[in-house]
Design a protein around this nucleic acid. Structure first.
Length: 262
DNA sequence: ATGGCAGTTCCTAACTGA
């Protein structure tokens, strides 16, 4: 089975590129982030024609997540609240950043972690609070049933310096600041492992490049899109790759897909 | 030091992203 994650930065703008990519890569599941569309307007038809079942949680203009799956997903849950309750979730489900379902006994979670804007801002505090609730959410999922987890998406965090083209001074900015790295490490301490790092130790592998300043041609990238697995799945994993090709398209997303194979 | 690019809507300016 192959599962991929891709922040497409508007599914309506990227529909043809995603269809093209799905025709080239026979993935069983594709997790999308930043769909930027309300559910009513999601372009379902091109993906249903390719044989995918669609599950989405969108909103106007911002955020939005979706899962495309060849097999129907079971027990689809949108947001944190179905798992941890509204008391703990608070207002965090107003932004559509979480969708989850079960496929072949695996609990799949597709995430779009908040960016955080800048250190100390309200959005940064929101990001840290969101990561804290994510930890409670995953802990509850692990407690509820003994199934394996596959947590994928745009984490907006480069966990280590080797995940950034030039890490010097980057700890002063979002996506590499110590507090958010610690918050993610705390989440991962539940027993989640980075699929990509099972196969690739060196730096220079990125999933996002800034549109500005010719970020991609100069390979000034960050690895912020991740696939985290519980140990049983991690052991079964036979590969994890970042596909840089879609980033070379005209009018690309600023992110590129990551694929894991069991 | 700043803005740079892209998508969307509050659509030709402002916002959010990363």
């Amino acid at each position: 089975m192959q599962i991929a994650t891709w922040n497409v930065n508007s599914i309506r703008t990227r529909t043809l590129q995603v269809v093209k990519w799905l025709n080239q890569h026979q993935v069983d599941v594709l997790c999308l982030q930043e769909t930027k569309v309300i559910d009513l307007d999601f372009p379902k038809q091109p993906f249903e024609e390719l044989g995918y079942h669609l599950y989405f949680a969108g909103q106007k203009s911002y955020n939005g997540v979706a899962i495309l799956s060849r097999l129907p997903l079971l027990d689809v849950k949108i947001g944190f609240s179905p798992i941890v309750g509204e008391e703990i979730t608070g207002n965090l489900d107003e932004q559509k950043r979480v969708i989850s379902g079960v496929i072949e006994g695996i609990r799949l979670v597709n995430l779009y972690v908040p960016n955080g804007s800048e250190i100390g801002s309200d959005k940064y505090e929101y990001k840290l609070r969101w990561l804290s609730v994510l930890g409670q959410y995953l802990k509850e999922l692990l407690t509820q049933s003994p199934q394996e987890l596959c947590i994928c998406g745009d984490f907006n965090i480069a966990l280590e310096d080797r995940d950034i083209y030039n890490p010097k001074g980057k700890d002063q900015f979002v996506m590499a600041s110590p507090a958010e790295r610690l918050a993610l490490l705390d989440v991962l301490s539940l027993g989640l492992k980075d699929a990509f790092r099972k196969f690739t130790e060196d730096g220079g592998h990125y999933s996002w490049w800034d549109y500005r300043n010719a970020g991609f041609p100069r390979n000034r990238g960050w690895r912020i899109d991740h696939i985290y697995l519980t140990s049983g799945l991690y052991e079964q994993t036979s590969g994890c790759l970042i596909d840089v090709e879609p980033r070379k398209e005209t009018q690309p997303s600023d992110h590129t897909p990551v694929i894991v194979k069991f």
